[in-house]
Simulated scan of single mutants.
Amino acid sequence: MVLRPTIEPMLAQARETIPHPGAVPGGMAVEPKFDGFRALLYTPAGAGQPTLIQSRRGAMYQARFPDLVAAADQLPRDLVLDGELAVLEHGQLSFPALQRRAAAVRNAKTLATALPAHFIVFDVLQAEGQELLDEPYARRRQILEALFADHRLTPPWTLCPSTSDLAVAEEWLHEWTDVPGIEGVVVKSLTGRYRPGVRGPWYKVRRRETTEAIIGGVTGSLRRPHVLLVGRYTGEGHLRLVGKTVPLTTAATREVAGQLTAAGPDHSWTGVRFSVWGSSGPLDPVLVDPGLVAEISADTAQDHGVWRHPVRYVRLRQDATMADVPAFGEGARPQ
Protein backbone atom coordinates (compact mmCIF):
# COMPACT_ATOMS: atom_id res chain seq x y z
CA MET A 1 0.00 0.00 0.00
CA VAL A 2 1.23 3.49 -0.86
CA LEU A 3 0.35 6.17 1.69
CA ARG A 4 -1.34 9.37 0.55
CA PRO A 5 -2.93 12.31 2.43
CA THR A 6 -4.63 12.50 4.69
CA ILE A 7 -3.20 10.22 7.37
CA GLU A 8 -4.18 10.79 10.97
CA PRO A 9 -0.99 10.95 13.05
CA MET A 10 -0.51 8.63 15.99
CA LEU A 11 -1.03 10.45 19.30
CA ALA A 12 0.33 10.15 22.83
CA GLN A 13 -1.35 9.64 26.19
CA ALA A 14 -0.47 12.10 28.98
CA ARG A 15 1.51 10.84 31.96
CA GLU A 16 2.94 12.58 35.00
CA THR A 17 6.29 10.74 35.02
CA ILE A 18 8.54 8.76 32.71
CA PRO A 19 7.68 5.07 33.14
CA HIS A 20 10.33 2.58 34.14
CA PRO A 21 11.72 0.81 31.06
CA GLY A 22 10.32 -2.50 32.27
CA ALA A 23 6.80 -1.04 32.27
CA VAL A 24 6.86 -0.45 28.50
CA PRO A 25 6.34 -3.63 26.44
CA GLY A 26 9.37 -4.37 24.31
CA GLY A 27 11.47 -1.66 25.96
CA MET A 28 11.24 2.07 25.43
CA ALA A 29 12.70 4.93 23.46
CA VAL A 30 12.38 8.52 24.65
CA GLU A 31 12.39 11.65 22.50
CA PRO A 32 12.26 15.35 23.44
CA LYS A 33 8.80 16.87 22.98
CA PHE A 34 9.19 20.03 20.93
CA ASP A 35 6.64 22.83 21.22
CA GLY A 36 5.61 23.21 17.60
CA PHE A 37 2.96 22.11 15.10
CA ARG A 38 2.63 18.41 14.37
CA ALA A 39 2.86 17.70 10.64
CA LEU A 40 3.26 14.94 8.07
CA LEU A 41 5.39 15.59 5.01
CA TYR A 42 4.88 13.72 1.71
CA THR A 43 7.42 13.87 -1.10
CA PRO A 44 6.11 13.19 -4.64
CA ALA A 45 6.21 9.74 -6.16
CA GLY A 46 6.77 11.08 -9.65
CA ALA A 47 7.86 14.14 -11.61
CA GLY A 48 5.46 17.07 -11.63
CA GLN A 49 3.77 16.07 -8.39
CA PRO A 50 3.96 18.45 -5.40
CA THR A 51 5.48 18.06 -1.96
CA LEU A 52 2.67 18.15 0.59
CA ILE A 53 2.69 19.23 4.23
CA GLN A 54 -0.31 18.08 6.26
CA SER A 55 -1.28 19.40 9.69
CA ARG A 56 -2.43 17.14 12.50
CA ARG A 57 -6.06 17.94 11.66
CA GLY A 58 -5.67 17.36 7.93
CA ALA A 59 -5.14 20.92 6.63
CA MET A 60 -2.55 21.31 3.87
CA TYR A 61 0.24 23.75 4.78
CA GLN A 62 2.69 23.63 1.84
CA ALA A 63 1.64 27.09 0.58
CA ARG A 64 2.52 28.50 4.01
CA PHE A 65 5.96 26.89 4.12
CA PRO A 66 7.53 27.38 0.67
CA ASP A 67 11.00 27.16 2.22
CA LEU A 68 10.37 23.57 3.31
CA VAL A 69 8.88 22.69 -0.07
CA ALA A 70 12.00 24.04 -1.80
CA ALA A 71 14.30 22.17 0.60
CA ALA A 72 12.43 18.91 -0.09
CA ASP A 73 14.66 18.53 -3.14
CA GLN A 74 17.16 17.05 -0.65
CA LEU A 75 14.74 14.23 0.14
CA PRO A 76 14.13 11.02 -1.82
CA ARG A 77 10.83 10.48 -3.64
CA ASP A 78 7.81 8.66 -2.25
CA LEU A 79 8.66 9.43 1.36
CA VAL A 80 6.30 10.14 4.27
CA LEU A 81 7.77 11.71 7.40
CA ASP A 82 6.14 12.52 10.74
CA GLY A 83 7.52 15.37 12.80
CA GLU A 84 7.19 18.81 14.29
CA LEU A 85 7.15 22.13 12.45
CA ALA A 86 9.19 24.75 14.29
CA VAL A 87 10.44 28.29 13.66
CA LEU A 88 13.54 29.98 15.00
CA GLU A 89 13.44 33.64 15.99
CA HIS A 90 16.50 35.35 17.46
CA GLY A 91 18.17 31.95 17.76
CA GLN A 92 15.36 30.35 19.78
CA LEU A 93 12.35 28.22 18.95
CA SER A 94 9.36 30.56 18.92
CA PHE A 95 5.76 29.35 18.96
CA PRO A 96 4.34 32.85 18.22
CA ALA A 97 6.60 33.05 15.16
CA LEU A 98 5.39 29.60 14.07
CA GLN A 99 1.79 30.79 14.42
CA ARG A 100 2.57 33.73 12.12
CA ARG A 101 4.05 31.36 9.54
CA ALA A 102 1.11 28.96 9.73
CA ALA A 103 -1.41 31.77 9.24
CA ALA A 104 0.35 33.41 6.30
CA VAL A 105 -0.34 32.65 2.65
CA ARG A 106 -0.03 35.91 0.70
CA ASN A 107 3.25 36.90 2.37
CA ALA A 108 4.52 33.36 2.96
CA LYS A 109 7.74 33.88 0.97
CA THR A 110 8.62 37.07 2.84
CA LEU A 111 8.06 35.43 6.21
CA ALA A 112 10.02 32.37 5.10
CA THR A 113 13.06 34.60 4.65
CA ALA A 114 12.63 36.39 7.98
CA LEU A 115 11.46 33.37 10.00
CA PRO A 116 12.79 30.18 8.40
CA ALA A 117 10.98 26.97 9.29
CA HIS A 118 12.51 23.71 10.45
CA PHE A 119 11.09 20.20 10.37
CA ILE A 120 12.10 18.05 13.34
CA VAL A 121 11.59 14.47 12.14
CA PHE A 122 10.80 11.70 14.61
CA ASP A 123 9.22 8.99 12.45
CA VAL A 124 9.10 7.63 8.91
CA LEU A 125 5.87 6.06 7.66
CA GLN A 126 6.95 5.31 4.11
CA ALA A 127 10.33 5.05 2.39
CA GLU A 128 11.08 4.24 -1.26
CA GLY A 129 7.37 3.73 -1.75
CA GLN A 130 7.21 1.03 0.93
CA GLU A 131 4.66 1.58 3.71
CA LEU A 132 6.20 1.04 7.17
CA LEU A 133 3.25 1.30 9.57
CA ASP A 134 3.57 -2.31 10.72
CA GLU A 135 7.31 -2.11 11.27
CA PRO A 136 8.35 -1.76 14.95
CA TYR A 137 9.53 1.64 16.12
CA ALA A 138 13.12 0.38 16.43
CA ARG A 139 13.17 -0.60 12.74
CA ARG A 140 11.54 2.65 11.62
CA ARG A 141 14.14 4.56 13.62
CA GLN A 142 16.95 2.67 11.87
CA ILE A 143 15.48 3.58 8.49
CA LEU A 144 15.12 7.21 9.57
CA GLU A 145 18.71 7.44 10.80
CA ALA A 146 19.95 5.85 7.58
CA LEU A 147 17.91 8.38 5.58
CA PHE A 148 19.64 11.29 7.32
CA ALA A 149 23.09 9.70 6.98
CA ASP A 150 22.78 8.54 3.37
CA HIS A 151 21.37 11.86 2.12
CA ARG A 152 23.49 13.99 4.46
CA LEU A 153 20.44 15.96 5.44
CA THR A 154 20.97 19.37 6.99
CA PRO A 155 18.58 22.09 8.25
CA PRO A 156 15.75 22.66 7.74
CA TRP A 157 15.68 18.88 8.27
CA THR A 158 16.56 17.86 11.84
CA LEU A 159 16.60 14.33 13.24
CA CYS A 160 14.86 14.27 16.61
CA PRO A 161 17.15 12.82 19.32
CA SER A 162 16.17 9.45 20.79
CA THR A 163 17.47 7.49 23.77
CA SER A 164 16.75 4.30 25.68
CA ASP A 165 18.79 5.48 28.67
CA LEU A 166 16.46 6.46 31.53
CA ALA A 167 19.04 8.81 33.07
CA VAL A 168 19.39 10.68 29.78
CA ALA A 169 15.60 10.85 29.42
CA GLU A 170 15.26 12.32 32.92
CA GLU A 171 17.94 14.89 32.07
CA TRP A 172 16.01 15.88 28.95
CA LEU A 173 12.81 16.29 30.98
CA HIS A 174 14.34 18.34 33.78
CA GLU A 175 17.21 20.17 32.07
CA TRP A 176 16.38 20.54 28.39
CA THR A 177 12.96 21.98 29.20
CA ASP A 178 14.74 25.08 30.51
CA VAL A 179 15.29 25.86 26.82
CA PRO A 180 12.36 27.64 25.12
CA GLY A 181 10.60 25.34 22.67
CA ILE A 182 11.05 22.05 24.56
CA GLU A 183 8.21 21.15 26.90
CA GLY A 184 8.83 17.54 27.89
CA VAL A 185 9.47 14.08 26.45
CA VAL A 186 7.59 11.40 24.51
CA VAL A 187 7.99 7.72 25.42
CA LYS A 188 7.51 5.05 22.74
CA SER A 189 7.64 1.26 22.72
CA LEU A 190 10.59 -0.09 20.72
CA THR A 191 8.37 -2.86 19.35
CA GLY A 192 5.29 -0.70 18.77
CA ARG A 193 3.79 -0.27 15.31
CA TYR A 194 2.50 3.07 14.03
CA ARG A 195 -1.26 3.28 14.56
CA PRO A 196 -2.80 6.29 12.76
CA GLY A 197 -5.35 8.18 14.83
CA VAL A 198 -4.74 6.08 17.94
CA ARG A 199 -3.63 7.60 21.24
CA GLY A 200 -0.96 5.33 22.63
CA PRO A 201 1.05 3.31 23.37
CA TRP A 202 3.01 6.55 23.14
CA TYR A 203 3.21 8.63 26.32
CA LYS A 204 3.90 12.35 26.67
CA VAL A 205 5.37 13.72 29.87
CA ARG A 206 5.46 17.49 30.29
CA ARG A 207 7.63 19.17 32.85
CA ARG A 208 5.47 20.91 35.43
CA GLU A 209 6.29 23.41 38.16
CA THR A 210 4.26 25.04 40.90
CA THR A 211 3.94 28.81 41.07
CA GLU A 212 1.49 31.48 42.22
CA ALA A 213 -1.17 33.53 40.47
CA ILE A 214 -4.15 35.66 41.47
CA ILE A 215 -7.73 34.49 41.04
CA GLY A 216 -9.42 37.21 38.98
CA GLY A 217 -12.52 35.42 37.72
CA VAL A 218 -14.34 32.13 37.48
CA THR A 219 -16.65 30.36 35.09
CA GLY A 220 -19.79 29.04 36.67
CA SER A 221 -20.83 31.05 39.72
CA LEU A 222 -19.37 32.36 42.98
CA ARG A 223 -21.09 29.55 44.87
CA ARG A 224 -20.07 26.87 42.39
CA PRO A 225 -16.98 27.89 40.42
CA HIS A 226 -16.09 25.56 37.58
CA VAL A 227 -12.83 26.98 36.17
CA LEU A 228 -10.55 29.66 37.61
CA LEU A 229 -9.14 32.49 35.51
CA VAL A 230 -5.84 33.53 37.02
CA GLY A 231 -3.70 36.60 36.46
CA ARG A 232 -0.64 38.58 37.45
CA TYR A 233 -0.13 42.32 37.85
CA THR A 234 1.87 44.44 35.45
CA GLY A 235 4.24 47.10 36.73
CA GLU A 236 1.48 49.64 36.06
CA GLY A 237 -0.91 47.85 38.40
CA HIS A 238 -3.16 46.16 35.81
CA LEU A 239 -4.15 42.54 36.32
CA ARG A 240 -3.37 40.53 33.18
CA LEU A 241 -4.82 37.10 32.44
CA VAL A 242 -2.11 34.41 32.43
CA GLY A 243 -4.22 31.26 32.20
CA LYS A 244 -7.23 29.20 33.08
CA THR A 245 -7.40 26.06 35.17
CA VAL A 246 -8.74 22.66 34.27
CA PRO A 247 -12.20 22.10 35.82
CA LEU A 248 -12.03 22.11 39.60
CA THR A 249 -12.56 18.98 41.63
CA THR A 250 -15.48 18.86 44.06
CA ALA A 251 -13.15 19.46 47.00
CA ALA A 252 -11.44 22.39 45.27
CA THR A 253 -14.81 23.91 44.36
CA ARG A 254 -15.84 23.89 48.03
CA GLU A 255 -12.51 25.33 49.16
CA VAL A 256 -12.50 28.20 46.66
CA ALA A 257 -16.23 29.01 46.79
CA GLY A 258 -16.05 29.78 50.48
CA GLN A 259 -13.48 32.51 49.84
CA LEU A 260 -14.78 34.27 46.70
CA THR A 261 -16.38 37.70 46.74
CA ALA A 262 -17.81 39.64 43.81
CA ALA A 263 -15.55 42.17 42.13
CA GLY A 264 -16.04 45.90 42.35
CA PRO A 265 -16.39 48.19 39.30
CA ASP A 266 -12.66 48.96 39.27
CA HIS A 267 -11.62 45.39 38.42
CA SER A 268 -9.02 45.37 35.62
CA TRP A 269 -11.12 42.93 33.60
CA THR A 270 -14.40 44.86 33.67
CA GLY A 271 -15.84 44.85 30.15
CA VAL A 272 -13.08 42.60 28.81
CA ARG A 273 -13.88 39.41 26.90
CA PHE A 274 -11.23 36.73 26.84
CA SER A 275 -10.31 34.15 24.24
CA VAL A 276 -7.94 31.63 25.78
CA TRP A 277 -5.88 29.12 23.80
CA GLY A 278 -7.75 25.81 23.74
CA SER A 279 -11.19 27.32 24.44
CA SER A 280 -13.99 26.69 21.96
CA GLY A 281 -15.14 30.32 22.17
CA PRO A 282 -14.76 33.55 24.15
CA LEU A 283 -14.91 33.18 27.92
CA ASP A 284 -17.49 35.18 29.85
CA PRO A 285 -16.31 34.89 33.44
CA VAL A 286 -17.79 36.04 36.70
CA LEU A 287 -15.26 38.56 38.02
CA VAL A 288 -14.13 38.24 41.62
CA ASP A 289 -12.23 40.46 44.01
CA PRO A 290 -8.57 39.80 43.10
CA GLY A 291 -7.43 39.24 46.64
CA LEU A 292 -6.90 35.47 46.59
CA VAL A 293 -3.56 33.89 45.71
CA ALA A 294 -3.70 30.38 44.27
CA GLU A 295 -0.87 27.91 43.95
CA ILE A 296 -1.03 26.36 40.49
CA SER A 297 0.82 23.66 38.59
CA ALA A 298 1.77 24.61 35.03
CA ASP A 299 3.85 23.27 32.17
CA THR A 300 6.44 25.28 30.26
CA ALA A 301 4.41 26.23 27.17
CA GLN A 302 3.94 30.01 27.35
CA ASP A 303 3.39 32.86 24.92
CA HIS A 304 4.62 36.16 26.31
CA GLY A 305 3.83 35.20 29.91
CA VAL A 306 0.51 33.44 29.19
CA TRP A 307 0.14 29.67 29.53
CA ARG A 308 -1.27 28.02 26.43
CA HIS A 309 -2.37 24.84 28.18
CA PRO A 310 -4.76 24.86 31.15
CA VAL A 311 -3.02 25.03 34.51
CA ARG A 312 -4.02 22.97 37.53
CA TYR A 313 -5.29 24.42 40.77
CA VAL A 314 -3.30 23.09 43.73
CA ARG A 315 -4.51 25.09 46.74
CA LEU A 316 -5.20 28.54 48.12
CA ARG A 317 -2.19 30.34 49.51
CA GLN A 318 -3.71 32.01 52.56
CA ASP A 319 -0.16 32.75 53.75
CA ALA A 320 0.75 34.64 50.57
CA THR A 321 0.18 38.25 49.55
CA MET A 322 0.20 40.02 46.19
CA ALA A 323 3.89 40.72 46.75
CA ASP A 324 4.60 36.98 46.70
CA VAL A 325 3.15 36.57 43.19
CA PRO A 326 5.56 37.11 40.27
CA ALA A 327 4.76 40.12 38.12
CA PHE A 328 3.26 39.62 34.68
CA GLY A 329 5.99 38.73 32.21
CA GLU A 330 8.54 38.22 34.98
CA GLY A 331 10.43 35.32 33.50
CA ALA A 332 9.18 33.18 30.64
CA ARG A 333 8.56 30.22 32.90
CA PRO A 334 7.04 29.33 36.25
CA GLN A 335 9.37 29.95 39.16
Results as ranks from 00 to 15, higher is better:
residue 148 F to D: 09
residue 221 S to A: 07
residue 71 A to E: 00
residue 245 T to E: 06
residue 267 H to Q: 09
residue 132 L to C: 04
residue 105 V to C: 04
residue 73 D to Q: 14
residue 243 G to W: 07
residue 324 D to Y: 14
residue 122 F to D: 03
residue 51 T to I: 07
residue 145 E to N: 11
residue 57 R to M: 05
residue 297 S to Q: 14
residue 320 A to S: 10
residue 133 L to N: 07
residue 40 L to Q: 05
residue 327 A to Y: 02
residue 67 D to A: 08
residue 328 F to L: 01
residue 251 A to V: 09
residue 316 L to S: 00
residue 92 Q to E: 11
residue 237 G to N: 01
residue 211 T to G: 08
residue 65 F to W: 02
residue 251 A to R: 03
residue 293 V to C: 10
residue 292 L to W: 11
residue 195 R to W: 01
residue 173 L to E: 13
residue 189 S to I: 09
residue 106 R to G: 04
residue 270 T to Y: 02
residue 321 T to I: 12
residue 56 R to G: 03
residue 298 A to L: 05
residue 211 T to W: 07
residue 195 R to S: 00
residue 132 L to V: 01
residue 28 M to Q: 13
residue 37 F to Q: 00
residue 50 P to I: 02
residue 264 G to E: 06
residue 169 A to S: 06
residue 36 G to V: 15
residue 63 A to M: 10
residue 122 F to Q: 13
residue 4 R to K: 15
residue 333 R to T: 04
residue 20 H to A: 10
residue 112 A to T: 05
residue 193 R to Y: 02
residue 215 I to P: 03
residue 159 L to A: 14
residue 175 E to T: 12
residue 186 V to S: 00
residue 320 A to E: 04
residue 145 E to A: 08
residue 36 G to N: 15
residue 298 A to S: 13
residue 137 Y to K: 02
residue 130 Q to C: 13
residue 62 Q to R: 15
residue 14 A to T: 13
residue 184 G to V: 05
residue 157 W to N: 06
residue 106 R to D: 07
residue 315 R to P: 03
residue 88 L to H: 08
residue 247 P to S: 09
residue 333 R to M: 08
residue 57 R to V: 06
residue 201 P to L: 05
residue 311 V to M: 15
residue 229 L to K: 04
residue 97 A to R: 12
residue 44 P to A: 00
residue 281 G to C: 15
residue 269 W to G: 11
residue 138 A to S: 15
